[in-house]
Simulated assay, not measured.
Amino acid sequence: MKADTPKRKIFSDAVDLLVGDPPAGVAAGGGVEMLDINGIRPFHGHPFPLYEGERLDDMVESIKEHGILNPVIVRKMHYGYEMLSGHNSQNAGKLAGLTQIPAIVKENLSDADAYVYVIETNLMQRSFTDLSISEKAAVQLSYLPEQAQKLALEASEKSGVVINKDIAAKVRKAPMTEKAILEAIAGKQPEVDPVLGVVEEKPAPKPIKLSAGIREKYFQDTDPKQVEAIIDKALAAWFKKKR
């Protein structure tokens, strides 16, 4: 349960922002800064598309009339700021002619915690069924530890396999090791011998099935192991005679 505590706190913060009740410590301007609206970079690999069409137009008109009511959430980076929650507010604000945007600045935030802000705030605004398959895969991967997320992305790039919703579900069930995550994404990998290189595994031979007529004629009520032994002896004698 302790491992879930930071994520639940982030979820609580996100809910407060969406319903218009800022998290503790940011009321009356505390913790909210006015930032250059063009000085915030989108979250790296942001998995959600920006609003378009009527939904975007309505948001722009609302901002022109009322401004941005809820602050966006950003994290401080060495180059400036990265957007966690508020990509659409930033985009609509630019179209509305704003030069600054109210923001809650998070510092010393890990990639894993940052990703939780991105995913959970978006899921609260969109129906899960409305998300595209890549987006649903991103949701699945967001529940993994940070290191496992990095291994999954590296395995996807290495193998050339795009992680869809089903593959992401397999990754979540796999042991959190590089080999297991790679196999969950790209399938079982061939053995690599330090001298011979890649050693391709031979496909397992398909079992030979006896017809119902042969079984009834020769092996009725015979144990399967005895059937195998009889056939082995018969074939050995036949090949010996043939030579």
Rank of each mutant, 00 (worst) to 15 (best):
N164D: 15
I10Y: 00
Q220S: 14
N88T: 11
Y117N: 01
D36R: 01
N91Q: 12
I231Q: 08
E228S: 12
G97F: 07
R243L: 04
Q125I: 01
G53A: 04
Y51A: 10
K136T: 08
A168D: 06
S12F: 10
T5E: 11
R75D: 02
S159A: 09
D111M: 08
A114G: 14
F128A: 10
M83F: 00
Y218V: 05
L210P: 03
T177Y: 04
A96Y: 04
I73L: 09
Q189T: 13
S85G: 12
I214R: 08
A204H: 06
F48D: 00
A14F: 02
T99Q: 14
E178Q: 14
M34T: 06
Y81I: 03
Y117A: 02
Q147H: 14
L235W: 04
T129P: 00
E120F: 04
I230D: 15
E191G: 07
F239S: 12
A92L: 02
E157Q: 15
V74D: 02
Y79V: 09
V227I: 15
V199Q: 13
A174S: 13
V161R: 10
G160T: 07
H46R: 11
G31L: 01
G93Q: 10
A28H: 13
V227L: 06
N164Y: 03
G29A: 03
P224V: 02
A234M: 13
H87K: 06
S134N: 14
E200K: 14
G197D: 08
L35E: 08
D130H: 06
P203E: 15
E120W: 07
V74H: 02
G45Q: 05
L123A: 05
E52V: 10
P71Q: 10
T5M: 14
R172E: 08
Y143Q: 13
D4V: 09
L17C: 03
P207N: 06
Q226V: 07
Q90A: 06
D232Y: 05
E154A: 15
P203V: 05
G80M: 10
E54C: 01
Q140Y: 08
R215Y: 03
F43K: 05
L84I: 06
P47N: 07
